[in-house]
Computed example of a mutant assay.
Amino acid sequence: MFEIAAAAGNPYASLMTYLPLILMFLVLYFLLIRPQQKRTKTRNMMLGNLKKNDKIVTIGGLHGTIVEITDDVVVLRVNDATKMTFDRSAVNSVVSTSTVEEK
C-alpha cells in the first residue's frame, strides 16, 4: 500500500517503471539494429555499383571477372574457357574494380 501512495504522489513514478525497458531497447538499437542497417546499405551499394571487368568473389568463394551483368544475373569468367552464371546477390565482395570501360 505504501508503494501505491508513493506512486500516486509522484507523477514520474510510472515513467521510472518503464525506464529500464526503454534503456534496453535503446541499447539493442545501437548495438544490433543500427549496425545491421549500415551493413545492408553498404552491401546494396556494392551490388548496385558492379560493372563489367570487376574482379569479384562469390559467397561460395569462387573468384572471377564479370563478363556480362544484368539486373539479376552476373556472368563470370573463371578462366579462359569457363563462364559461370550467378545471381547478383551471390556476390560477396569486389576484389578490384575496372578503371577502363569497354564499349
Rank of each mutant, 00 (worst) to 15 (best):
V57N: 00
L28H: 11
T85N: 03
F25G: 13
T97Y: 04
A13K: 14
L19I: 14
L21V: 09
V27G: 09
S89K: 02
Y29W: 15
A6T: 00
I33F: 10
N10D: 15
G61R: 02
T82P: 04
L28V: 14
A8R: 10
L19A: 15
D80C: 02
V73R: 07
M45I: 03
V75G: 02
I56V: 15
T58R: 04
T65N: 04
T65M: 12
L28F: 15
N53V: 06
V95W: 02
T85E: 02
L31I: 03
R77E: 08
D87R: 07
I4T: 05
N10L: 13
R77W: 02
G9L: 13
L26S: 13
T85H: 05
V73F: 11
D71E: 09
R43V: 04
I22V: 15
A7C: 04
G60N: 02
P11H: 10
T17C: 13
I4D: 07
I22D: 04
E101F: 06
V100F: 03
D80I: 01
V94L: 07
T70W: 05
E102H: 04
V95R: 02
E68W: 00
I69P: 06
R34V: 11
L19M: 15
L32M: 14
M45R: 11
M16L: 15
A90H: 02
N92A: 12
R34Q: 13
I33R: 10
H63G: 06
S96I: 01
L76A: 10
R43Q: 11
P11W: 13
K38T: 11
I33A: 10
N49I: 08
K41C: 01
V67P: 08
R88I: 03
G48Q: 08
N10Q: 05
K103W: 00
K52D: 05
V75H: 00
S96V: 05
T65L: 12
A13E: 14
Y18Q: 11
K41F: 12
D72P: 02
K52L: 14
K103V: 07
M84K: 13
G64T: 03
S14N: 11
L23C: 11
M45V: 04
P20T: 13
N92I: 07
N53C: 08
V94S: 08
D71W: 02
T42K: 13
D87P: 00
A7R: 03
N49Y: 07
L32W: 12
N79E: 03
V73A: 07
